[in-house]
Design a binder for these strands. Structure first.
Lengths: 246, 246
DNA sequence: CGGTGTCTTGAATACCATCAAGTCTTGTGG
DNA sequence: CCACAAGACTTGATGGTATTCAAGACACCG
């Protein structure tokens, strides 16, 4: 696999302008609002990085907890032979990793998929706030528990499911998360979909070549429409059956 | 795959005798001690179940948080076609799942591998104690963060590594955890090892047949000795290279 | 306009699953 | 104590799914 020379770390925090949070697709779901608004009003830095840029590197110290405001990112483990495994896709409102609060040295990197806008909260600030606000801590833990459940589900998918099943389940899972954020066309199963096939491959433990073949087959059988950075699930019922074959 | 008619749920809590915790291999590591001893002295029930018995079922309500005292168990997701994926092995001192504190309905089952002795703490008790003791909460979260890291590591293994690598890494990981608990022969890499090959298969996303072939190959090349419920890593250095090939 | 990234398709190959038969051990009831 | 059944493991033959290799089409960008 090829080196990616364009990947350089984000370096320059923007001035902390009051960004239009109304644009954040997950404003209501997210911890971000609670942390940044009164009465807590934690300080944070804001960053904007272009697609394909690295937000933070594997094994490098990180003293902020990043929260995505706009765009898609992914947390990725890179192996020494260049192969990659995506642990999770990060959508607006997602904190990069809940576990990051307790370990300053992530074992994965975070890479922007689209242009990404994000905030970095100081770890120590977040921890003191959580320690003082039991209800906040509780909702934080619930979010963490959800992430744990998703990770375990992914383990099952990678361990025991075929390529068709893995890909169908990934797409359905993303569709569900986008719907929660109001990021699908109202009523339909149509959504903006910035993932490249190599992202799908890295998330499902497959090769890009095989992903291409499976998606083509899905397209031919009228299950999905996928093109021009957009995805439509045409036959949700049949598509879900493929994801739940076992 | 076959139905396992012998698996019935553990039903009868024993009388709450003061068990000899000195025998617990992970007494110092575990939350269990802190929870059960003064000054907290939480109430708990104690259970002993034979090998292959189910401690708790997938999707069934559970109002206690089990902590393993003796023996090996595994948390397992079962799919409708009978195939199984082991999420984690549970050793003495392990709580069944940290996430279980926030979701009473586990998406996995827990099965005893050897005879298992465990305690069940009431979820609500544990939560109130955690809420009141910041240092306890902190160490709880650190344990959770470790479990999260292990799950992510497993995702990488299943997504991007070959059978040889997966199996070698599993054995090394277990050896490391056993060593932490003083459950290896002092100085050597020899340990009691109750796993059947089908457990290894279910944990690595492989078939028992293939596990057998890989283990035989490891044995032939003098990497490990594995027989009679015991495992010795004969050539740790070479074995680790196999686990870290990429 | 070349360069890079993305996607597609086909052919050859590798890895692991499946199927099957046989050995050995373990546990159980007669 | 023996007979029998079930579980655990091994080994070889065969097959399928996904990888690797390769070539070409297409879009986008500086």
């Amino acid at each position: 696999m090829s080196a990616r020379p364009h990947s350089t770390i984000a370096e320059f925090p923007q001035s902390r302008t009051s960004t239009t949070c109304a644009a954040c697709a997950a404003y209501d779901l997210s911890l971000c609002r609670t942390l940044s608004e009164a009465p807590l009003a934690l300080q944070y830095s804001e960053y904007t990085v272009p697609a394909r840029r690295i937000l933070c590197r594997q094994h490098e110290l990180l003293d902020v907890v990043p929260v995505i405001c706009r765009g898609w990112a992914a947390s990725i483990v890179m192996l020494s032979d260049g192969s990659r495994q995506i642990l999770s896709f990060l959508l607006p409102g997602d904190a990069v990793s809940t576990a990051l609060l307790f370990d300053a040295r992530p074992y994965f990197m975070v890479e922007a998929i689209t242009d990404v806008h994000y905030r970095g909260f100081k770890r120590s600030d977040v921890r003191t706030v959580l320690a003082r606000q039991p209800d906040l801590l509780d909702s934080f833990c619930r979010t963490w528990a959800q992430a744990t459940a998703r990770a375990d589900q992914l383990i099952v998918d990678l361990g025991r499911r075929t390529a068709d099943e893995r890909i169908a389940r990934l797409l359905l899972y993303l569709a569900e998360r986008l719907a929660q954020r109001g990021m699908t066309q109202r009523g339909t199963m149509e959504m903006e979909f910035p993932l490249r096939q190599h992202h799908i491959a890295d998330a499902t433990g497959l090769t890009p070549v095989h992903v291409s073949k499976v998606l083509s087959e899905f397209r031919r059988s009228g299950l999905i429409k996928i093109s021009e950075r957009s995805l439509t699930i045409l036959d949700p019922e049949r598509f879900q059956r493929i994801g739940h074959m076992r």
